[in-house]
């Protein structure tokens, strides 16, 4: 089975390390993929705020492109992998709303037709967590582990959008996919309550006080539960939680130094992949100390 990979804008700039580590992990686990040709932005929350039909139309363009690129080879639905939470949600939402609301379906389809595109409704949108845990399987992942994470306490931060409202691969209130994954890598998953609490998204850039406070609460809780590091699944969550820790330390008089990795980076480390391939050097807070004390070496 071949996956079509939809990176999204963030994975080409601030979230570059996510792309690097994700693709390395895919290669290690023999997951076949190819990048979607000429993909466009998913529209994020901003398009929804301004014009909903256009938001659905641009996401539908990606769905149509994916379908065309896969070319009806008759092996079930086209598997489109979207690693960014916002992209994942928007693609899912577009699919769902086109099915549920004939009015949207009509406008979007007609629009696509006028520029020579066609969407048959034959795309399944997947998140890499879903692909790795449910398609590849934890057993295969555990087999590939070279340096188990031993006693490392890992807090899995799922963020808002991958488990709710449309993500169907895990429980929206208490997801466990990443925790099971951490277990397979040999680490200890931290049981904590803010797994799916919102990080504030773009609020950190717009209304700084609000964004910082939301991030502060999440990291604070992870630290209180004794986490050595946190893993995330979204480029924006990672950016908000990692890059603003110095500002949080200043504003809330705390002393955060919590490494926040993409879950694929942690997988890569356990697989013994070179750090360069995983984009570890792109992190603000190096996981080296946590890694050395727990895993050794």
């Amino acid at each position: 089975m071949k996956y079509i990979y939809y990176p999204g804008c963030s994975l080409k700039s601030t979230g570059r390390a996510y792309e690097e580590s994700l693709l390395s992990v895919f290669k290690t686990l023999d997951v076949e993929y190819e990048e979607l040709n000429d993909w466009n932005c998913c529209g994020a929350t901003s398009y929804m705020s301004i014009n909903e039909s256009k938001a659905f139309a641009i996401s539908a363009r990606n769905l149509a492109l994916a379908e065309a690129q896969a070319g009806g080879d008759g092996e079930g639905p086209v598997q489109l992998v979207a690693p960014c939470s916002a992209c994942y949600l928007l693609l899912l939402k577009t699919r769902r709303y086109m099915e549920e609301y004939p009015e949207i379906d009509r406008i979007v389809r007609q629009g696509l037709k006028e520029v020579g595109l066609k969407y048959e409704g034959n795309v399944r949108v997947r998140h890499p967590v879903d692909v790795l845990v449910n398609d590849v399987g934890l057993e295969k992942i555990a087999e590939r582990v070279k340096t188990p994470l031993k006693d490392m306490q890992v807090a899995s931060y799922y963020g808002c959008l991958i488990v709710r409202p449309f993500g169907a691969f895990d429980n929206p209130w208490n997801p466990t996919s990443l925790d099971r994954l951490v277990g397979a890598l040999g680490g200890t998953p931290v049981d904590w309550s803010l797994k799916t609490r919102c990080c504030g998204g773009t609020l950190i850039g717009t209304v700084r006080g609000v964004g910082l406070r939301l991030g502060y609460r999440i990291i604070g809780e992870a630290q209180r539960k004794g986490s050595d590091l946190m893993i995330t699944t979204c480029p924006l969550c990672q950016f908000d939680l990692e890059c603003f820790q110095k500002d949080m330390n200043h504003d809330f008089e705390v002393n955060f130094n919590m490494p926040v990795l993409y879950f694929t980076q942690l997988m890569g480390l356990a697989f013994g992949l070179p750090e360069k391939e995983l984009g570890i050097q792109r992190l603000f807070v190096s996981p080296e100390k946590a890694y050395k004390t727990c895993v050794g070496g």
């Binding site: 929804m48 808002c160 709710r164 409202p165 609020l203």
Partner: peptide
């Protein structure tokens, strides 16, 4: 509203 969908769910 940060569009986290907690209320919707």
């Amino acid at each position: 509203c940060a569009s986290c969908y907690a209320c919707t769910v």
